[in-house]
Computed example of a mutant assay.
Amino acid sequence: MGEGSETKPHYAGHRDRLRERFLKSPDTLPDYELLELILFRAIPQRDVKPLAKELIAKFGGFSEVLNAEPARLREVKGVKDATITELRIAREVGLRIAQAKVLKKEVIGSWDALLEYCSASMAHNPTEQFRILFLDRKNVLIADEVQQKGTVDHTPVYPREVVKRALELNASALILVHNHPSGDPAPSNADVEMTRQIVDTAKPLGIDVHDHLVVGKGRHASFRSMGLL
Rank of each mutant, 00 (worst) to 15 (best):
Lys105Ser: 06
Leu133Phe: 01
Ala123Thr: 06
Gly109Asp: 03
Val102Ser: 05
Glu145Met: 14
Lys104Ala: 08
His154Met: 12
Asn125Ile: 00
Pro126Glu: 15
Thr151Cys: 06
Asp144Phe: 01
Ile108Thr: 10
Gln129Tyr: 15
Leu103Arg: 07
Asn139Phe: 01
His124Glu: 08
Val102Leu: 06
Asn139Cys: 01
Glu106Trp: 08
Gln148Ile: 14
Glu106Asp: 11
Arg160Val: 12
Ala100Ile: 06
Arg96His: 10
Ile132Ser: 01
Leu133Tyr: 09
Glu161Leu: 13
Asn139Ser: 02
Gln129Trp: 09
Lys101His: 03
Gln129Leu: 15
Arg137Gly: 12
Gln147Pro: 01
Leu114His: 03
Ala113Ile: 04
Leu95Met: 12
Val157Ser: 12
Phe134Met: 00
Ile142Gln: 11
Gly94Phe: 14
Lys149Glu: 13
Glu161Val: 07
Ser110Ala: 10
Arg165Ile: 08
Glu161Tyr: 15
Gln147Glu: 03
Ser119Trp: 04
Glu106Ile: 08
Leu103Trp: 04
Gly109Glu: 00
Arg165Gly: 08
Gly150Asp: 10
Asn125Phe: 01
Tyr117Pro: 07
Arg160Ile: 09
Gly150Arg: 06
Ile132Cys: 00
Gly94Gln: 11
Ala100Pro: 07
His124Val: 02
Lys104Thr: 11
Leu115Phe: 05
Glu116Asp: 10
Asn125Cys: 00
Leu114Thr: 02
His124Tyr: 00
Ser110Gln: 14
Phe130Thr: 01
Lys105Pro: 05
Ile132His: 00
Gly150Thr: 06
Trp111Asn: 04
Leu103Pro: 03
Asp144Gly: 03
Phe134Tyr: 12
Leu95Gly: 15
Gly94Ser: 12
Ile142Met: 03
Tyr158Gln: 14
Val107Trp: 07
Lys164Asn: 10
Lys101Tyr: 09
Asn139Trp: 01
Val157Phe: 15
Ala100Asn: 08
Gly94Asn: 09
Glu116Trp: 14
Lys149Phe: 13
Glu161Phe: 15
Lys104Ser: 11
Gly94Trp: 07
Ile142Ala: 05
Pro159Lys: 14
Cys118Tyr: 09
Asp144Gln: 07
Leu141Gln: 08
Glu161Cys: 13
Asp136Arg: 08
His124Arg: 03
Lys149His: 11
Ala143Thr: 08
Ala113Phe: 11
Lys101Gln: 14
Thr151Gly: 06
Asp136Asn: 12
Leu103Ser: 08
Gln99Met: 07
Glu145Asp: 11
Gln148Val: 14
Pro126Gly: 11
Glu145Lys: 13
Val107Arg: 08
Lys164Gln: 06
Ala143Ser: 11
Val163Gln: 00
His154Thr: 13
Glu161Lys: 15
Val93Leu: 12
Leu133Cys: 02
Val102Asn: 09
Glu128Met: 05
Thr151Tyr: 05
Ser119Phe: 10
Ala98Asp: 06
Arg131Lys: 13
Leu135Gly: 05
Ser119Arg: 04
Lys164Ala: 15
Ile97Asp: 12
Val102Trp: 09
Gln99Lys: 08
Val140Asp: 05
Thr151Val: 07
Ser110Val: 14
Thr155Asn: 12
Ala100Met: 13
Ala98Gly: 15
Leu103Met: 13
Glu106Gly: 04
Gln148His: 12
Tyr117Arg: 07
Ala143Gln: 14
Leu115Ile: 09
Ala120His: 02
Asp136Leu: 07
Lys164Glu: 13
Glu116Asn: 07
Ile97Met: 11
Arg165Phe: 10
Glu161Trp: 11
Thr155Ser: 14
Val162Thr: 09
Ser121Asp: 01
Arg137Phe: 15
Asn125Ala: 00
